[in-house]
């Protein structure tokens, strides 16, 4: 039985919207602010399930 198709345009920040502020620790333990880190550059923000499995 196939899954019902999902409308991904309604999931998460929408196209044309400013991506919300995100501040999280990176692999070195320091806090990284997404927009500060971009420093005016375009950015690719990737969400994935896990680095562990």
């Amino acid at each position: 039985m196939p899954l019902p198709p999902r409308d991904f345009s309604t999931i998460g920040p929408k196209e044309g919207q400013r991506f919300p502020d995100v501040r999280l620790r990176d692999q070195k333990g320091g806090l990284v602010d997404l927009h500060e880190y971009r420093a005016g550059r375009p950015a690719l923000v990737v969400f994935y399930r896990s680095a562990e499995w």
């Binding site: 345009s9 920040p13 196209e15 991506f19 950015a43």
Partner: peptide, 18 residues
């Protein structure tokens, strides 16, 4: 778990592609 995927932001931080 998040949905797996990616956002592309422009220089102003606006979402241009998802």
């Amino acid at each position: 778990l998040p949905y797996p995927g990616a956002f592309l932001l422009d220089r102003d931080g606006l979402v241009t592609h998802k």
